[in-house]
Amino acid sequence: MSIAAELSGGFSSARVFALVKRYIYLLRASWPRLLELVYWPAVQMVTWGFLQTYVMQTSNAVAFGAGVFIGGMLLWDLLFRSQLGFSMSFLEEMWARNMGNLLMSPLRPLEFVAALMVMSLVRLALGLVPVALLAIPFFGFNVFAIGLPLAVFVTNLVLFGWAVALVVSGLVLRNGIGAEGLAWTIMFIVLPLGCVYYPVGLLPAWLQPISWALPPTAVFEGLRAILTTGAIRPDLMLWAFALNVVYISVSIVIFLYLLGRSRDAGSLVQMGE
């Protein structure tokens, strides 16, 4: 089945809402799932917060005092969780052997993707907003004080997270649940290459173009600029956004292509390893 066939038909927000409701029911029915949303970001925040406090006591570097560590950690977690939130909802369908029910229903592939994006945002809000608020009294770091640029950072990171999640979901559809490990690990390549905790200039010259090809690099550079000098870098945000338009478009095409390949290979009939 061609990509055009997968894209055919209208778009129903009612069907998106119906699927979102399914994931909300699931979250409500499972306190471990809810706890997991908050647990790891909270552990990260506390660890990096104390590390930053310690380094501040032993160093005069402006960056430490400005909250570069804890800010980087919060936005890194946002990036990781935007991808994971999307992927987890997708994997729930694989684990529940429900994918056939969905793909045989009137739900269009892009409506499925839209529902996964909504759930990614819901999971982010549930997991990261409380942790970001806790960072204020614990470590005196208020990420919300960044203001409007924060919304731009978040938008760019979430878009990139979704782009990665779409490719991972396509690979899991095509190759079965045995590929689910990618959902947990693939984003970690961005940790060194996206320069979450250090400037791009620190990388070897040959690696820097690769780093700049990743939208998160521009976001983390922009974050450091604001926190250390107060400078807002719209050029970086535009670069990140332009890259994201390309990444998200390509990832949707890849997802639909892999869905079509799954129909060709018959792998949608028996979802498993």
Binding site: R22, Y25, L26, A29, S30, N98, M99, N101
Partner: peptide, 10 residues
């Protein structure tokens, strides 16, 4: 079909 299931937790 026996190849699909309903989500168990719901």
């Amino acid at each position: 079909s026996p190849y699909v299931d309903m989500p168990h937790r719901l």
